[in-house]
């Protein structure tokens, strides 16, 4: 967090020193500041800021891919397949080892990824109830959520 603020300050400084002041200048300054911070991370005590930023990028890209895939799946289901191909049911997904913020982000992502929607979060924040369009194989569904969403998210937050 402190490193992010430092990066912002560097970007603003770049903005003040540059001859033109546009939004693009701010982002150039931000990128330069990021490069500097990751080069001198050992000296500047910024901890794992570069690693986290990379994890954020990877998580964002992976999520975007899943989101587009989800929309193509919905399109195929809605336009070409009849409802008889569906096997909708509820699936339980354990989230006992996550913090509340992680559960929030994870359930948002689950809602926007193929074939799954979060319908309920247990009051003690230990499990999610997921509604899946195709619940023939709940174990495979849980594994898919683990590898595609949960692990990149944990790499970002921990």
């Amino acid at each position: 967090m402190k490193a992010l603020a430092f990066n912002m300050v560097l970007a603003t400084l770049w903005l003040l020193l540059s001859p033109t002041r546009t939004t693009a200048d701010f982002f150039i300054g931000f990128a330069l500041g990021f490069a500097g911070l990751s080069l001198f991370s050992a000296v500047l005590d910024t901890g794992d800021y570069p690693r986290r930023a990379l994890a954020l990028g990877r998580f964002g890209l992976g999520f975007l891919r899943e989101f587009l895939h989800a929309n193509l799946t919905v399109a195929a289901q809605v336009l070409f397949r009849s409802a008889r191909a569906l096997r909708p049911d509820f699936v339980r997904y354990e989230v006992a080892d996550l913090t509340r913020g992680e559960i929030l982000v994870l359930s948002y992502c689950i809602t926007l990824t193929p074939g799954t929607t979060v319908v309920h979060i247990a009051e003690d924040f230990r499990a999610l109830t997921i509604h899946a369009l195709d619940a023939r194989d709940p174990a495979a569904l849980r594994r898919a959520i683990d590898t595609r969403l949960k692990e990149p998210l944990l790499r970002l937050t921990r």
């Binding site: 929309n71 919905v74 289901q77 809605v78 409802a83 909708p88 926007l112 074939g115 929607t117």
Partner: peptide
Amino acid sequence: GLVRLPDVLCRSHAVAKAGTL
């Protein structure tokens, strides 16, 4: 999807994903 899918929960899938995109 809202018209074609068979029940409320399935319809909410279509609205959440396709509507957001």
